[in-house]
């Protein structure tokens, strides 16, 4: 089963993503509330995929992505963004994020995205 680490400061978003993933046969490796927490959890549970929110306190998703990439250059990180964050998303892509989803996202979009990322 594909293990996913969910990084988001909003419990609601974590819960939403989690529910979508679990329904579709993904395993939740862990949850984190900010970038540094995300890195810590990544080291602990070695997920197959990370979903990473961009706007978070303490350490934002961009920095979190870079830290994870530093630790594991092959890490597969999907950014969770919102309209208006185009520049940040682009930076994320340049920093090695595999792709991104845009809030409010649809379940099938999320699932399709993650499945494709796993397959690569």
């Amino acid at each position: 089963m594909t293990k996913v680490l969910i990084v988001d400061d909003a419990a609601f978003m974590r819960m939403t993503i989690k529910a979508m993933l679990q329904k579709n046969g993904f395993e939740i490796a862990g949850e984190a509330e900010n970038g540094s927490d995300g890195l810590k959890k990544y080291r602990e549970c070695h997920p197959d995929i990370v979903t990473m929110d961009i706007t978070m306190p303490e350490m934002d998703g961009l920095q979190g992505l870079r830290e994870i990439k530093k630790f594991d250059p092959n890490a597969k990180v999907v950014m969770v963004s919102a309209m208006g964050q185009e520049k940040m998303v682009m930076e994320a892509i340049m920093s090695g994020a595999k792709t991104f989803i845009v809030k409010p996202f649809k379940e099938e979009h999320v699932i399709e995205t993650l499945k494709k990322i796993v397959a690569i």
Partner: peptide, 24 residues
């Protein structure tokens, strides 16, 4: 900014569009 961003995102997911637009 961050809190508004969170509210916007969550509200949009729950389809509370008036809240989400305002937060936006």
């Amino acid at each position: 900014f961050r809190m508004m961003h969170t509210i916007k995102g969550s509200s949009a997911m729950m389809l509370f569009n008036n809240i989400s637009t305002l937060a936006h």
